[in-house]
Structure formats: C-alpha cells, structure tokens
C-alpha cells in the first residue's frame, strides 16, 4: 500500500487513527507491516502490499 492511503483508513473496530509499522517496503509502497490503532491498539496486517482491515474476529473466522 502507498503510505498516502493511510489518510483514508481507520480502525474498523473503534474508528481510531492508524499508525504504520513498516517491515518491508520499496520505492512505491509498503509491502509488509502492520497498521496499529492509536486508540485501541488492535493490529492489522499488511501482506504483499495489501492491508487487511477486517476486524480480528472476522479475519480469523473467514
């Protein structure tokens, strides 16, 4: 995901702002990492450049 995308994303659980934790990136985008909610601390994975913003219970169930 491009870093700029962060502006329009929020925590799906509490609508809090997210901060980015980068594990791997290239010139264009973040490839691996986490989006972490400033408010409730829930972590959302970024894998292969795709952020997964499903609430944890949905992410694990599906």
């Amino acid at each position: 995901m491009r870093k700029k995308l962060l502006d329009i994303l929020a925590c799906p659980v509490c609508k809090g702002d997210l901060k980015l934790e980068v594990k791997e990136e290239n010139e264009e985008e973040v490839l691996e990492g986490f989006l972490i909610c400033d408010n409730c601390n829930e972590k959302y994975p970024i894998e292969e450049g795709i952020p997964n913003l499903l609430p944890p219970e949905l992410r694990d169930k599906l």
Binding site: M1, I8, L53, L54
Partner: peptide, 12 residues
C-alpha cells in the same frame, strides 16, 4: 490500490 475490508468498516 486495494484493501481488504467489510463494506466501509476501516475506511474514513
């Protein structure tokens, strides 16, 4: 540009 999300949950 793509995100995994349930409808608009996670989009602000």
């Amino acid at each position: 540009e793509v995100v995994v999300a349930d409808l608009f949950r996670g989009i602000k």
